[in-house]
Design a protein around this nucleic acid. Structure first.
Length: 434
RNA sequence: GCGGCUUUAGCUCAACUGGUUAGAGCGCAGGACUGUGACUCCUGAGGUUACCGGUUCGAUCCCGGUAAGCCGCCCCA
């Protein structure tokens, strides 16, 4: 009957304190930075009609082929929990006729995505993406703005060792010719490869280029690169993207074999990959951000002809990465006030609440108890300062405040502050302790 | 989806080739200090050794299954 423990669903994790603070920091930096770049936040539902993803992401991709959480709702509709954010954003863009009200639209979103995959570090069934979409600009400056936004984000958040990889897939006009060449090239060696590779060969030949299979490595290194086949317009576009990136000081690496898994990409594609010198906290899940241009997606989904560029970042991976380089940081109160039983306790509590309402980070122990225990508690929550408030303090209208963050073996440091001067002192102490 | 590894207290890990009351550190709780003070000392509470079954006189240890996690492939953020 009762008492049976129920665990969470495999691959879907809870985020609890103190780890939540890393998430909130990322979210805060994102909101502020994206706003400065002119991007507005959108929120779309977790689920969409299955058809949306089949048509945009591509029928033969693994995402659509075997990784979607799809179910039939009570109205007999086929519904899918979104496996990515670009298609829902495009759907909303079309559905609300945004193209009719503004020629240029820049959006971003954050939220959970769902894919039924084998679990690994940095790869979950429910994962969170932070993505941006820019509609309406064909100019290479738009590609560059989006890429620069990513680079600025990594810099601001303090993620080291991410390198930008860049490639161009062309506008699609020359792709059939390229694919034919590629198939021809791999045909002699594909026989010795795995079933996975053979399936890729048939259905999604470009994917072979980032296969890790031993028998294919030699061929991969010599395989024709799509960038040598692309149309003149795409070539010029790509050259400008590269030139502008150099101009604004964003470092990149050309990666002739960079192909992306979703069907809708055209022209510029890019990835930010975590490549530290030592241990890699992400293992083989090193891609932290992937994006590119998808000039035909909006039209293919029934909208107007509108070019677009965007990217998606894996926030779970970002969190993992930040924790591996910075550890988990926990916010702490500036001042912890200890209370005594007696008539002054009400005053002490009122003081705590008043200070909080004025914007100060002040804590106390609502359980009361011995002052020693309260001070222990203050130490546990890493309070910067501690002061008892009892009969003496109430009478003298001043606090004796102890420094709780003294280095090992240092002499005690206690300051006496009048209640009237407390706000000014806290302002100063808050700045120094955070 | 394929191959390999792992699972002992809330956390990190012990326990000789299967042998009886499964340990430690951290954390948590209490006391020394019957309320002006924490980082000291003492004490305590937590385990059907992931779950189900098998072999055995006897299983944390061996075998099978299930679940969860990890590594590589695949895929991708």
């Amino acid at each position: 009957m009762s008492g049976q423990k129920i665990s969470g669903v495999k691959g879907m994790n809870d985020i609890l304190p103190p780890q939540i603070e890393t998430w909130q920091r990322i979210e805060a930096v994102a909101r502020s930075l994206f706003a400065r770049y002119g991007f507005s936040e959108i929120r779309t539902p977790i689920v969409e009609h299955t058809e949306l993803f089949v048509r945009s992401v591509g029928e033969v991709t693994d995402i659509v082929g075997k990784e979607m959480y799809t179910f039939t709702d009570k109205g007999d509709r086929s519904i899918t929990m979104r496996p990515e954010g670009t298609a829902p954003a495009a759907r909303a863009y079309i559905e609300h006729g945004i193209a009719n009200t503004e020629p240029l639209t820049r959006w971003f979103y954050m939220g959970p995505m769902f894919r039924y995959e084998r679990m690994k570090t940095g790869r979950y069934r429910s994962f969170t993406q932070l993505g941006a979409e820019a509609y309406g600009a064909m100019d290479p400056a738009q590609d560059v703005e989006v890429i620069a936004l990513c680079a600025a984000f990594f810099k601001e958040i303090g993620v080291p060792d991410v390198v930008l990889k860049l490639n161009s897939l062309g506008d699609g006009s020359t792709r059939p010719a390229y694919l034919a060449k590629l198939k021809e090239f791999f045909a002699p060696v594909i026989g010795g490869a795995s079933e996975d590779a053979k399936r890729a060969f048939e259905q999604n030949t470009m994917r072979l280029l980032d296969s890790k299979e031993e028998v294919l490595q030699d061929a991969i290194s010599k395989a024709p690169a799509i960038i040598d086949f692309i149309d003149e317009g795409s070539k010029a576009h790509f050259a400008t993207v590269c030139r502008l990136l150099e101009k604004i000081g964003v470092l990149y690496e050309l990666d002739r074999r960079l192909v992306r898994g979703l069907d809708y990409y055209t022209r510029t594609t890019f990835e930010f990959v975590y490549q530290p010198k030592g241990d890699n906290a992400l293992g083989t899940a090193g891609t932290v951000c992937g994006g590119g241009r998808y000039d035909r997606l909006v039209k293919e989904l029934g909208g107007p002809e509108k070019p677009a560029v965007g990217f998606a970042m894996g926030m779970d991976r970002l969190v993992l990465l930040l924790e591996s380089v910075k550890g988990v940081q926990r916010s702490a109160p500036t001042l912890f006030i200890g209370t005594f039983d007696g008539p002054e306790r009400d005053e002490a509590i009122a003081l705590v609440m008043a200070l909080r309402n004025e914007g100060f980070n002040v804590d106390f122990d609502p359980r009361g108890g011995k002052l020693g225990k309260q001070k222990e508690r203050a130490s546990k929550v890493n309070a910067a300062w501690f002061a008892g408030y009892g009969a003496t303090e109430a009478a003298e209208r001043k606090l004796k405040i102890d420094n709780m963050r003294l280095p090992e073996g240092a002499p005690k440091e206690t300051v006496e502050i009048s209640l009237d001067g407390l706000r000014a002192w806290l302002n100063d102490a808050g700045k120094r302790s955070s």
